[in-house]
């Protein structure tokens, strides 16, 4: 007879860290339950057994009511990488705040442009995480992400000089590398270890023709 509850290390068909139970074989992702419970406890601001237990019950109910598709997201947590990413993000938010402020008060208007930047990572999650992180890059805001070619299109406030454009591209690639080193699988990390792809040169020199 089949047992009521199967953990993933007994059944290799299940995704890692999940369990399967009941007649209809509901699959529950245990890290997701833990995360939802943590949010629940934090929202109540009191760590007590009652809160933890109701949190687990509520998050299991939510996961059963709104089941997510069974995909391997490719999310791995690397503590050191996350620390580097957070530190860099804080520093970057500080500098980008200052730069945007300076651009706001500049008398002469800046030339803006939309540039496309090809990324090296291929997984959906890494693409999304990079786009979120890149939104904090000085003077860049994401307009469009193309999934098929893994290209991020962003609006740059000061596109006057080719040097500024190069700096924007480099900071996106740097952010991509940090993000993937914090959350990516081994293959993705190997991919971002390679030098950035060559971009077709475009810029003011062509636009002026």
């Amino acid at each position: 007879m089949k047992s009521r509850l199967t953990l993933s290390y007994r059944n290799k068909e299940l995704p890692p860290f999940s369990c399967e139970f009941g007649e209809r074989r509901h699959v529950i992702d245990l890290p997701l339950i833990a995360w939802l419970t943590l949010i629940w406890v934090l929202l109540w601001s009191t760590l007590s057994w009652a809160n933890v237990i109701t949190g687990v019950v509520v998050s299991v109910a939510v996961c059963l009511a709104f089941p997510l598709p069974k995909v391997d997201l490719g999310l791995r947590l690397h503590p050191w990488g996350i620390l580097c990413l957070v530190t860099y993000l804080l520093y970057d938010m500080y500098t980008s705040g200052i730069r945007v402020t300076r651009q706001i008060f500049d008398r002469q208007a800046h030339e803006a442009a939309v540039i496309g930047i090809p990324l090296r990572c291929r997984s959906d999650l890494m693409l999304a995480a990079t786009a979120v992180a890149v939104s904090n890059v000085p003077g860049g805001s994401v307009v469009e992400v193309r999934r098929a070619t893994a290209t991020v299109f962003m609006h740059v406030l000061d596109a006057d000089s080719p040097a500024a454009l190069d700096a924007a591209r480099r900071s996106v690639w740097r952010m991509e590398e940090l993000t993937v080193r914090a959350f990516g699988t081994r293959e993705e990390i190997a991919r971002v270890g390679q030098p950035p792809p060559d971009t077709p040169r475009s810029g003011p020199e062509r636009g002026s023709a």
């Binding site: 803006a112 442009a113 786009a131 979120v132 939104s135 307009v143 992400v145 193309r146 596109a159 062509r206």
Partner: peptide, 30 residues
């Protein structure tokens, strides 16, 4: 960032962007 991306994307796609004022635009070509 998600909210600002959606605003930017919908503004771009509905033609709220003044293309004359952009120095160049690699997305438009695509």
């Amino acid at each position: 960032p998600v909210a600002s991306h959606l605003v930017a994307r919908s503004a771009y796609r509905t033609g709220q962007i003044d293309h004359e004022r952009l120095l160049f635009d690699e997305l438009d070509e695509q």
